[in-house]
Amino acid sequence: MIINHPLLGPRDASEFTYLGDASLIDRPDWQAEDAQQQFHDYLYLRDNPAGEHRELWFHEQGDRSWLVVTRNTLTHEITGVELARDVAMQRGRGR
């Protein structure tokens, strides 16, 4: 596979390390009342869609960016690649 890195252009996927669903960015609030349930759902449950999937890849043998890649799990077609840091900021993550 080839991942079209937003800063570097197309790079072979073998430079990257895969983590999983991009929802792993949305780490729950540790002080929530049902924090344990929330963390359970966050860490263990997956939509696992057959189709478009937003997922995290780490450019380990490259620029060390975490990326959010939008890829179809039926065809492997990639329709979007973003820096995960930008995505995380947009989703309100900060400090």
Partner: peptide, 10 residues
């Protein structure tokens, strides 16, 4: 300039 992997080496 680019960082990549060759023969399992960064």
């Amino acid at each position: 300039v680019a960082r990549t992997v060759m023969e399992h080496l960064g």
